[in-house]
């Protein structure tokens, strides 16, 4: 264990990888590492990259990171893709678009499946970000699929949320407006060499201007990530958002919220584990039968279950 921690602080990729595996598998070891090294955390800037599928999130991440490593920055990337609810399996393909970064000494990339967790992130993502932070990364990029209200957890984890869109998604803008417009700090219209880019930019700006006036008005940037166009500007906007967060005291506020959320999540996970443990047995099956037979209602069963868990904990 000592060895792993030492290696982790040296940003040894195998050590980081193993620590994240512990986090993903919800093992006690992950919490132990964080407990011991928590003082080292808090230095990484967390950038969330989100948007609908097919808009070029991975390519954009790849280019942003390439620019940053040229400045000597150390970077962790976490790419989250949905796990199939039917088989529990997933195909994680974001690395395809980040091939050149694979062997870069200052970059670590990890693909994660959501593993049944809702909100667009996996349960392990929160801890994985902490681990990369502890390992001394200057930036951690978290890439998630985000298309509707159900996938907005990225806001809970990132300092700056970059929403990536592409022209020709006309109808999707409505969905985005309805759901996740509020969470973006920077908008990127990628693939802007395609027809309809200016229209998308215009629509976004109109939507943003209709919104309640805010201290930070999210900028809209055009990019062609594939050709490296607009990358500098996206980074610039991320930086100025960071400056705004610091000067307005929002960064502290966001991080405070994040700690709150991490605690809640952790409690929730622990409780859920107990709940599921209770639900697997015969006694529970019998209760279900009773509900089926209308002898009792589901809410009474739930209440009893909750009390049981609480009592045991006390």
């Amino acid at each position: 264990m000592m060895e792993l921690e030492k290696l982790l602080l040296n940003r040894d990729k195998r050590a980081i990888a193993r620590a994240i595996t512990y986090a993903e598998d919800d093992e006690e070891k992950a919490r132990e590492i964080i407990r011991k090294l928590y003082k080292r955390s808090g230095n990484a800037y967390i950038v969330g990259i989100t948007g609908p599928p097919g808009v070029g999130k991975s390519t954009l991440t790849d280019r942003l990171v390439k620019n940053l490593v040229e400045e000597g920055k150390k970077i962790g990337i976490i790419a989250v893709d949905p796990t199939s609810p039917f088989t529990g399996g997933s195909i994680l393909g974001d690395r395809i678009r980040m091939q050149d970064l694979t062997t870069h000494p200052n970059v670590y990339i990890r693909s994660m499946g959501t593993r049944g967790h809702l909100g667009g992130l996996s349960k392990g993502t929160y801890m994985a970000v902490r681990i990369l932070d502890i390992a001394g990364m200057d930036y951690v990029f978290v890439e998630t699929v985000g298309v509707g209200q159900s996938e907005v957890d990225i806001i809970k984890i990132a300092d700056t949320v970059v929403m990536v869109l592409a022209p020709g998604l006309g109808d999707d803008i409505q969905a985005i407006k309805a759901g996740i417009m509020e969470i973006a700090d920077v908008f990127v219209v990628n693939k802007s060499d395609r027809e309809g880019a200016d229209k998308t930019v215009l629509e976004l700006n109109m939507m943003l201007d209709l919104d309640m006036p805010k201290e930070w008005r999210p900028p809209v940037v055009k990019a062609v990530a594939q050709e490296g166009k607009g990358i500098g500007e996206v980074l610039e906007k991320i930086h100025s958002h960071k400056e705004y967060l610091i000067s307005s005291g929002q960064l502290e506020e966001r991080r405070k919220n994040r700690i709150k959320m991490e605690i809640t999540e952790s409690v929730k996970n622990k409780l859920m584990k107990d709940v599921f443990a209770k639900m697997g047995n015969e006694e529970f099956d019998q209760k279900i039968q009773k509900v089926m037979a209308k002898e009792i209602d589901p809410y009474t069963v739930a209440e009893a279950l909750y009390r049981q868990i609480l009592e045991r904990r006390e």
């Binding site: 796990t83 997933s90 195909i91 994680l92 690395r95 395809i96 091939q99």
Partner: peptide
């Protein structure tokens, strides 16, 4: 193979 492994409940990292 990637699809078959996924359908068997594995997490497949595909690199191209």
């Amino acid at each position: 193979i990637a699809r078959a492994l996924r359908d068997a409940g594995m997490e497949v990292i595909y690199t191209g």
